[in-house]
Design a protein around this nucleic acid. Sequence first.
RNA 1: GGCGGCAUGGCCAAGUGGUAAGGCAACGGUUUGCAAAACCGUCAUCCCCGGUUCGAAUCCGGGUGCCGCCUCCA
Length: 417
Amino acid sequence: MTLKLKNSLGGALEDFLSLEPRKVRMYHCGPTVNQPIHIGKFRSYLLADVLRRHLERSGYEVLQVMNLTDVGHLNEFEEDVVEIAAGRAGGYAWELAENEMRLFHADRRALGIRGAHEYPKAREHVEEMIETIRLLEEAGATYVEGGNLYLDITRYEKLGCLCGSTPAELAELQDGSKTTEGAQKRNPLDIDLWRTDELHQMRWESPWGSGFPGWHVECVAMSRKYLGEHFDIHTGADDNLNPHHEFEMAQAAVLAGEGDEREPLAHYWLHSGSVSVEGQAMSKSNGNIVPVRELLESGIRGRVVRVALLSEHYRDNLDFGEAALDKASEAVNVILGFRDHLSGQASAETRDPGGSAAGWITDTDAAFTAALDEDLDYWKAISVVVKALSSLEADTVGSPAQALDALGDWDRVLGIL
RNA sequence: GGCGGCAUGGCCAAGUGGUAAGGCAACGGUUUGCAAAACCGUCAUCCCCGGUUCGAAUCCGGGUGCCGCCUCCA
């Protein structure tokens, strides 16, 4: 059985084939560290976490990189969101960023998300970004306007291939939205590469003046540094898809040049679906954004939040609320209860190394792995285990030690114990 | 307009080619001083049309309906 993944690039369910045998390199769009990280973002990090765990359990060696954006993420007024948040708190941008990063990792651990191999911070990779921008400039794809450097988007004809639109359609959408941004651009879809700003708290010298890098170039530069020009999987939340991932691809395509037949950046692109809260879309404007920290502080166990955020296939919309938490709580209780119940018996058990596993273990294991291989259907995988455990009777468990070993093995992916 | 998802009894919902799980509700009954609870029982051919097949809720084509996203926000 091989892993199948729904690739946002092309939209088909594809057999996963790594670039190098038994090795997977993947990049995940991480948080902008201006505020507590909410459940929508963490849902996409959980997708990355479970994907990594499943790949490793399937025998792959995984290299996982997630960026942390601490500079260059602008709001609709063209203000740096980290700097704005720091200003409100009466401090400096880098101080706020460092603190939020620390809290992000605390939240992350509470949800049982394993640490990526690298968490590159944007502000520590400006040199690489400048180098990336230089290469784009050498390709003749940039221009300066109003002191800022932009990428001419018309250099990438396939813009929209991820979200299934044409450049013209994207331009139309763009027209109806933002007002201030892009006033100086020749084309509203042109990408910010470098912004000059003498007053920006975090600024660097560059061939284009003192300032800071554009948001979209950051991921390109950092993924190139740690994963190379072409890697296996790129994930993010679905709102990263347009424009962020489209823009990443555009830059990568220009860098690769016309001779490169490979897809820009990654072979597979995965996107997690949106999260609603008690039936209402979670958004700034609805005022119902739920930070994970808030949930943890209210006493909800991290593992329950984890499972609640896994309680729907990753591409489906997830409604987070009482129902999801109850469902998750029940699943966690069944699994922990089973472990606690058996751990006493297992220690007293005389090991029988030659004994074959009970039938329910092999059946459950097959269904568990099959669910994960089918486009990482982790909720189905969890359900398979929970159903199996809750339907066992004392005399059908078989060897307690073997049952615990099996549960431990499944938990390499679930991360609940 | 584009992209994606979903359509199974009153409601929720399992089910990925072989006579449609389960839960809630409802209805009938047993028990009970009445009621509740508990227990027993009853309750669907799977949105429509066409195709593939010995056989489809399950596969393919077309249609209809609903939802999400495409804007801050992930």
